[in-house]
Design a protein around this nucleic acid. Structure first.
Lengths: 338, 338
DNA sequence: CTGAAAGCGCTTACAG
DNA sequence: CTGAAAGCGCTTACAG
């Protein structure tokens, strides 16, 4: 039989360890060991087996391995909204570390729906060695429940007893508020994200704490959605609130608000200062470029995967990692004109 | 230690069909049938089995099922660069259709490297029922080879004998060139993408054909990378080419060029018209907002998954789907000033 | 309508 | 260092 020539249209039969065992004159167990526990058998046979395997185009069947070992070599990544550019860097960082460790990433989008998120989590959980929950919309108990059946690490969410990595809102936000205060802003708004979002809670809390410390007045406005459209639709409320600066839940919302301001002839930052959160792709694109607070998303993705791998190995019981945010001062903030 | 339940820290033993068989007093085969071939056994037993399964929190083990059936219920999605926002909508569309059909998406990023892409493809191929290759950097023979072992559909790439879905560059590009011509542009540039990119070839060809038809002079400039930085770095060459308009390989490059123009005090569109490609997230953000040609990425992602599912079912042998692009006229194009 | 049995491809004690 | 055997959780002809 020749190697590449005359295969049936679909479904050349893949070689198994039995095929390479036969080709080498050893037992399947020996083939398995040669391929997976290098050094446990004579260098000569190992070499012969490897060559035969290569010759036959043998690929290990991960499903078959998963059965006896219970390890799939696969990690599940669940995000609340894949459409949000904020997750790109995270996904990328996660993917990189997963690959470096020979793990495969499976991912799913739960579209801001906690029901869908739970479904996805349960469905994925049987197929993976561990789960990464990003910006989960589940409640603490549900997350703890999930974490009790398989290794799990939460990203952008802190849950007692569950490993997690989150940004520390404080450093970036402190600088943002300080800057606004220095510019003379005294009455500001927080344009809030989804109530089910833990990060929204953190950002909200941080803004309120910091602003009150400075003696600033702060009003809260609920954005109808954590999206650009949500930000745009919030414009009337922002306008009505009669503030000189707004801190948005995230860049998407801030960007949407910027668009609305432009449409209504409101000068940013002259009439209104706007601060975003995340520093997503595109935040620097508009004029004025968006001032924002950056979370180390790529780093968080990498750390989260490493942590997950560690708890899979049974190394870590439950660790919480807090990574600092950073203020990115661009063009959408200045002293109020009047 | 902590209070949430009595389970061992990690690894509550999951229930198997044997457990529910025992609980119901039937055989495992019957359980299997009850759960997977509804209607093939008495409604009463089926009901009892379902209840017992729910009671025990039974979840099918996809690995175990994959062994005898050879079907994993999983699709692999390979993109050349996950960081490019252009893939967001595609991924989203694909994810949606996959979920609707009970399939799980596994995805991997090959970072513009054809070696990494081949590695990923081979590694994934054994674990999935089919592969989606997006903007593949492999050559035709390699893709055909991959397609010969398992169902595969290519996106943004047409390969003879291999199913694929691609945008038809023509409608959008024709309008773009027509507009430029009407504006009086006579000497334009194509700012090219990666040579290994099939889409780059298509766009390039289309631009050249269309422009020559109109009697326009067209020069080609190679962008060092298909990224914003690549576009920015191309600025000197664009400047030197002494053209009044440039069509970029994609929006990322166009956006980068826009930034460079701004930095150098070149007025867009007064001094230079810029047209992008893709209409990625953020293309409308800068001032001037980027004029571009939109590919129906979300639709392509959905169609591609449907096609893949169809070839997995053995329905389609090899189909090529061509979806029209659309011109998006924004602010970065106008009549040249001088 | 339902059960007993074989088998999917691999791993891993257990013996030599 | 290597092999024979059992088993992972499921499916599916094959018989009743």
């Amino acid at each position: 039989m020749d190697g590449s020539g005359r295969s049936a249209p679909k479904g050349r039969v893949p070689a198994t360890i039995y095929d390479v065992a036969r080709a080498t004159g050893v037992s399947p167990s020996t083939v398995s060991r040669a391929l997976n526990k290098p050094g446990r058998l004579s260098a000569a046979t190992e070499q012969r087996i490897r060559e035969a395997a290569a010759e036959l185009g043998y690929r290990m069947n991960p499903m078959a391995r998963a059965l006896p070992t219970g390890k799939t070599g696969t990690l599940g990544l669940l995000v609340s909204d894949l459409t949000n550019p904020v997750y790109f860097d995270l996904v990328r960082g996660a993917e990189r570390i997963a690959r470096e460790n020979g793990a495969t990433l499976i991912f799913a989008d739960s579209q801001e729906s906690s029901e869908l998120e739970r479904d996805n989590a349960e469905r994925l959980q049987v197929a993976v060695d561990g789960l990464l929950l990003v910006a989960s919309r589940l409640d603490d108990a549900q997350i703890q429940e999930l974490a009790s059946v398989k290794p799990l690490v939460a990203v952008n969410r802190l849950v007692s007893g569950v490993s997690g990595v989150v940004p520390d809102v404080s450093p970036g936000m402190t600088e943002a508020i300080n800057l606004l205060h220095r510019h003379g802003h005294r009455r500001i708004a927080y344009l809030a994200g989804p109530e089910a979002s833990w990060m929204n809670g953190m950002r909200r809390l941080s803004v309120f704490d910091l602003a009150e410390d400075k003696g600033m007045t702060i009003v809260e406005i609920q954005s109808p959605a954590p999206t650009r459209d949500g930000g745009t639709e919030s414009y009337p409320l922002v306008k009505a609130a009669n503030v000189t600066a707004v801190l948005a839940y995230n860049d998407l919302v801030a960007l949407g608000l910027l668009r609305a301001c432009r449409a209504h002839g409101v000068d940013v930052p002259g009439d209104l200062s706007v601060v975003g959160f995340d520093d997503i792709f595109g935040a620097d694109l508009p004029t004025p470029a968006l001032t924002t607070v950056r979370s180390p998303m790529s780093d968080m993705g990498m750390r989260a995967v490493r942590m997950l791998l560690a708890v899979i190995e049974g190394e870590a019981e439950s660790t919480q990692l807090i990574l600092p945010t950073e203020f990115v001062n661009r063009e959408s903030t200045a002293a109020p004109r009047r």
